[in-house]
């Protein structure tokens, strides 16, 4: 299950509680009992990639964790929520939201005049593989988003 909002996430018998501040750890609880299981470095949004058993947290940075070992896989600096990243015509990804689209973590935001998104390849396994610049989802699109 992916989410991309501040709602708690339920997956594999665990409850992931998204913190309100990115400086606060993201705790995980047993969904049946409420017992504490573990905690990850925080983010104000969370996206769970069930297939890869990855947790992505988005706050002051974009981070990836292995949910089996709880090991941090990689981290990259991320513009604040809602900041302009790139211009597209895609309406679906707007709304300052995050979702998983095949192999990419898509980061979207919308302003009164345009919608923006960017995407990060989530298949990477090591911090050395993190690209220097955020990848565009549709390189052919150069036009501003419609109103």
């Amino acid at each position: 299950m992916t989410d991309g909002t501040s709602r708690p996430i339920v997956e594999d018998g665990h409850l992931y509680v998204i913190p309100m501040r990115s400086s606060t750890p993201l705790p995980v609880f047993d969904v049946e009992t409420g017992d504490f299981v573990t905690a990850y470095t925080g983010g104000t949004r969370g996206v769970l990639d069930s297939g890869r058993r990855r947790l992505h947290t988005i706050g002051d940075a974009l981070r990836a964790f292995d949910t089996e070992s709880t090991v941090a896989l990689w981290k990259r600096e991320q513009p604040p929520l809602g900041m302009t990243i790139d211009e597209t015509e895609n309406l679906y990804l707007a709304g300052s939201s995050y979702s998983l689209d095949d192999d990419r973590l898509v980061v979207g935001a919308m302003t009164p005049t345009a919608a923006f998104y960017t995407a990060v390849d989530v298949a990477i396994t090591d911090v050395a593989d993190v690209p220097g610049a955020l990848a565009r989802l549709d390189p052919a699109s150069e036009e501003p988003a419609p109103r």
């Binding site: 909002t5 501040s6 709602r7 708690p8 996430i9 339920v10 409850l15 509680v17 998204i18 309100m20 705790p27 609880f29 969904v31 409420g34």
Partner: peptide, 22 residues
Amino acid sequence: LLAPPTLHDGMLYLSTGGHVVA
């Protein structure tokens, strides 16, 4: 309530000020 509730198998999971509640 700090975030919208999450619905799963007949249960609502909520994050409140200082607590996690089912």
